[in-house]
Nucleic acid binder design. Structure first.
Lengths: 371, 371
DNA sequence: AATCAGCTGTGTATCGATACACAGATATTC
DNA sequence: GAATATCTGTGTATCGATACACAGCTGATT
């Protein structure tokens, strides 16, 4: 197929012979340049150049030395999420910064949601793993655990032997929920997926809640049970919203919940339109990301609703678009968290340091400033 | 340091012994499951599970088989650009899609702009390279060439033995330049960096042009010579803009040029403010990206200039923000180009198919619709 | 003068798998 | 019924480097 003649790889032994030194001298010249004299190093470099030696074979090096120079990143989502989802992108920017500082390459393991994802993980030539939010029952987590390599899980799930980095999502959700639900009568929530099935649709907080409309989408009937979500982040935020609404004397069954399968404003806009119309139209919506909240904002604008007059609204993450939109939100630096995950994975921190709760704070803006 | 006892890796031979089969049977059970009987495969899986065997050692596998299951991506920029620059991100999304389809991991090689970048490239355990726009004289290109692996360069430079994918940037720049410079009297250009020095600042098209202000920033005096830029994309676009302005009877020395060191609206806004004020204030600006153009737009708004009344403006790439802003732009799908690069790299296309010119088209919007 | 440490160079064993070639058993063909 | 093809299992050589231990030499230390 290829027009290129398959060039045979030049070996270290050939370079050694050409340079008139031993193989080990060549090896040291590459791996530990300080270990050899300037003269020997020069001879090696010259011979390598002349023969077209590209440097030590990475596979052979890693077989013998046990190190690869790669940090593996596993997303619970399709590989393209790394570049399509703004939250993942910010997180990975932090991971990338630390990788660059360490001279480590960043390997994105190609998960696609299929069972073979497990094989992709075990085949990955890496020194450590960083895992982006995954469902409690995702077999990929067990595969990572089985490799015995250092691994840091961001957002969940928690596992013995794996480090864990996350914010107190429940407390944060309670805080922002208090703000957005204050004075509300018909609260709504725009949620991330509940579990690996990633079903989306609109329903309400409790089963058999005749007072609320059935809603659309493939979500199973019976309402949303926060405790049943297998994504830790989703679960904790739903619990927090529930707590906040309960503080006002409300009941979870009164809360309408829309579940988006992706973190996109487009999908959010569709569901928000549903939440904002009909006899049970929400007058307060807590969204699990700023992207989702911006979708709500678009739907509200189209419906002629004013924010915060006709609708209060909150997001999450304090993305670039949040401030211009006046969006109340939970600020947490995903970039910092990515950096922290990468550092923890690469530095082999002691167990005591390995589990980290990261900071968050509420940013109160006009979108919740009810008159 | 680590609290974890360094678990010794279980070897394939141990699994073979425990399963009562030969090593090769185990190897086949993993690498070519169809090669062994269901019964043997079951025995192997059971033994592997029992012993905690994580699967074949990736390094050993790659040493013997010559394949790694990794596609390497090299950015001419710092590694974090992969996730910070919107253009790079879209390109990589396409690369990632193809990787996922092939079950290949995506390895980002950690370049930081230092001389050791060359080592990072030769150390990378990959089967092929995709290279994102690099300067003609970047030593990283030679290092990639030396590996003898298939490599595809996006945007330049061109090299024997390396495939090349790019749009006809000069023609596209001419087309959009015609549009934005039509009826203009004081044209300006907002450019990407000219070379690896990445100097930024404001100057004009020709040396010793007394008619124009000296400008700010560390750019060398003497004006901008399009032909001297070592980034192919920058060079071709500058030439195209020059061609377009020449068609109106204008001279390149009359064109004011601002060079941004990064593709960010923030930096663009600063330089645009300079281009848009003073006795030589531009009334038409061609920007090399939509991000830069949006920075111009912000500066114009602050200065009370109307677009297109007081200023015509063009961008590049047709990003999401371009349409809402009414921005005339050159549309090209970086995502498709990323996918094409990855496919070319992974499929070992024949030489004839290896150089690809990608499609582009002009999208004319209100930002150039001069009354 | 004797001892010791540091620097530089070398040879060999080894990392953990897969390519390859071969052999026996079973199914298929004429 | 003989010849041939297919399926399954095995043993050995080998991929290309680095860890390790050792040796000679130089200069410093006492």
């Amino acid at each position: 197929m290829s027009g290129r003649t398959a060039r045979r790889r030049v070996t270290m032994a050939e370079v050694a012979r050409a340079a008139g030194v031993s193989v080990m001298t060549v090896s040291y010249a590459y791996g530990q340049p300080g270990r050899v004299s300037d003269e020997a190093r020069a001879k090696v470099r010259e011979a390598a150049e002349r023969l077209g030696y590209p440097g030590p074979h990475p596979g052979a090096r890693s077989l013998r030395s046990g190190r690869t120079g790669n940090l593996g990143v596993v997303l619970g989502e399709h590989l393209t999420y790394a570049f399509d989802d703004p939250q993942a992108t910010r997180f990975l920017s932090g991971v990338a910064q630390v990788c660059a500082d360490h001279g480590m390459a960043l390997t994105l393991v190609p998960v696609t949601g299929s069972p073979s994802d497990v094989d992709r993980v075990t085949e990955a030539a890496v020194d450590a793993f960083v895992v982006w939010t995954t469902a409690d029952d995702d077999p990929v987590i067990d595969a990572i655990s089985a490799t015995g390599l250092p691994a840091v899980v961001h957002g969940g799930p928690r596992r013995d032997g794996l480090s864990f980095v996350a914010a107190d999502d429940r407390a944060a959700a309670t805080a922002v929920g208090r703000e957005v639900f204050a004075g509300a009568r018909r609260p709504g929530v725009l949620s991330f997926p509940l579990d690996r099935a990633r079903l989306s649709g609109v329903t309400s907080g409790a089963p058999l809640n005749d007072a609320l409309p059935a809603g659309s989408g493939p979500l199973p009937p019976g309402g949303i049970d926060p405790d049943a979500s297998t994504f830790r982040v989703t679960r904790q935020r739903l619990r927090g919203y529930r707590d906040a609404w309960a503080e006002t004397g409300g009941d979870w069954s009164q809360v309408r919940v829309a579940v988006c399968s992706t973190n996109s404003a487009r999908e959010a806009e569709t569901f928000a339109a549903e939440l904002l119309t009909g006899p049970y139209a929400c007058d307060a919506i807590a969204a699990m990301s700023d992207e989702l909240a911006l979708g709500v904002l678009r739907a509200a604008t189209r419906l002629g609703l004013t924010v915060p007059g006709g609708l209060t609204l909150s997001g999450w993450d304090d993305s670039d678009a949040a401030a211009p939109a006046g969006l109340t939100t939970v600020a947490q630096s995903l970039r910092d968290q990515g950096a922290r995950c990468a550092r923890t994975a690469l530095d082999h921190l002691t167990p005591a340091d390995r589990d980290t709760e990261v900071a968050w704070h509420l940013i109160s803006r006009t979108s919740t400033r009810r008159a």
